[in-house]
């Protein structure tokens, strides 16, 4: 976009003034902690041993050799990918449902946000009970809909535990994705649909050729944000499985928590944080690049 040169400078200054308050607050609350953390990641910094000395890249090297860490990394990737895929598909579907102008609109919009509005502690304790074989509502439902002899202890089984953790995660987070997509869909001008309809496009075609391209920017941003929050989430795992059985559900964020608060090995914990940041940053950069390219 071309602007007059005299105006352009004033506009830039104005833009900086707009951005400044938010930028200052964000810098204030993150800059020093992040720099300190990056510094710790180069230290052999362990409070139990009362050690704090420079160790260079030793922490990272140790991590690369650590089997459990690598297992956690792979489960984190799996957990994030599966969750994200389901959240996107179900989220878009739910957003489309909430967008419809019908009698149940208000109802579905309110109901849909409830899982996201429930406090995490409540959800995690409920989830722990829900997947119990004897007292859990999940198996109870399965038994009620016709599989009377069904018995399966989700959290005592490796894949069962992984599936259960992912199900709860999706259940809790779909609505967040959906409500933002709803807002984006609402921003689509009605004429676009009408002209597409006049051209005889089917509903699917409209979704993929009109609606989604129009909201592509929001869509990508949401995928970035939700993806990042998945990579960094561990409360569900902590409450439901403590990373077990074995180490099957130890997410990276859970390992980080263990290393920092329980082992008080802040050097190693910082190194894990750095690895997590790098993983998310790569994800974010790819997302941001696509975001910049999309221009509707």
């Amino acid at each position: 976009m071309k602007r007059k040169i005299t105006l352009s400078r004033r506009k830039t200054i104005f833009a900086w003034m707009c951005v400044l308050p938010v930028l200052v607050i964000r810098l204030w609350t993150t800059a020093y902690p992040v720099v300190a953390m990056s510094y710790y990641s180069l230290l052999d910094y362990d409070l139990i041993r009362r050690k704090k000395e420079f160790a260079g890249l030793q922490n990272i090297r140790n991590l690369a050799k650590n089997k459990q860490f690598l297992e956690s990394l792979s489960f984190t990737v799996k957990f994030t990918m599966i969750s994200i895929c389901f959240i996107i598909v179900l989220g878009v579907a739910l957003a489309l449902l909430m967008k419809q102008n019908f009698g149940g609109r208000k109802l579905i919009r309110t109901v849909a946000l409830i899982p996201w509005g429930l406090s995490m502690i409540v959800v995690s304790i409920a989830a722990l009970w829900a997947f119990d074989d004897t007292y859990g509502i999940v198996n109870d439902l399965i038994r009620r809909i016709g599989f009377e002899g069904y018995h399966f202890t989700w959290l005592a089984d490796k894949s069962g535990a992984q599936v259960a953790v992912i199900i709860v995660n999706i259940w809790k987070n779909v609505s967040f994705f959906a409500i933002i997509m709803l807002a984006a869909f609402q921003g689509i001008p009605g004429e676009l649909f009408e002209s597409a309809r006049i051209d005889g496009a089917s509903n699917w075609k409209i979704l993929f050729h009109v609606s989604l391209p129009y909201v592509m920017r929001t869509f990508i941003i949401m995928i970035i944000f939700v993806g990042v929050s998945q990579i960094n989430s561990f409360e569900i795992v902590y409450a439901m499985t403590k990373g077990g059985p074995g180490t099957t559900t130890s997410l990276l964020a859970y390992r980080l928590y263990m290393e920092a608060t329980k082992n008080m090995n802040y050097g190693m914990a910082s190194a894990i944080t750095m690895v997590m940041f790098l993983v998310t940053a790569v994800y974010g950069i790819i997302g941001l690049r696509i975001y910049r390219k999309v221009d509707y």
Binding site: Q68, A156, K158, K242, G246, T247
Partner: peptide, 22 residues
């Protein structure tokens, strides 16, 4: 031990694997 939390995370994980016959 001072590292008992780690014990609860790693060693018991191994025991669980054995109990599951893995």
């Amino acid at each position: 031990s001072e590292r008992h939390s780690e014990y609860m995370d790693t060693v018991t994980g191994t025991l669980q694997e054995y109990l599951m016959d893995e």
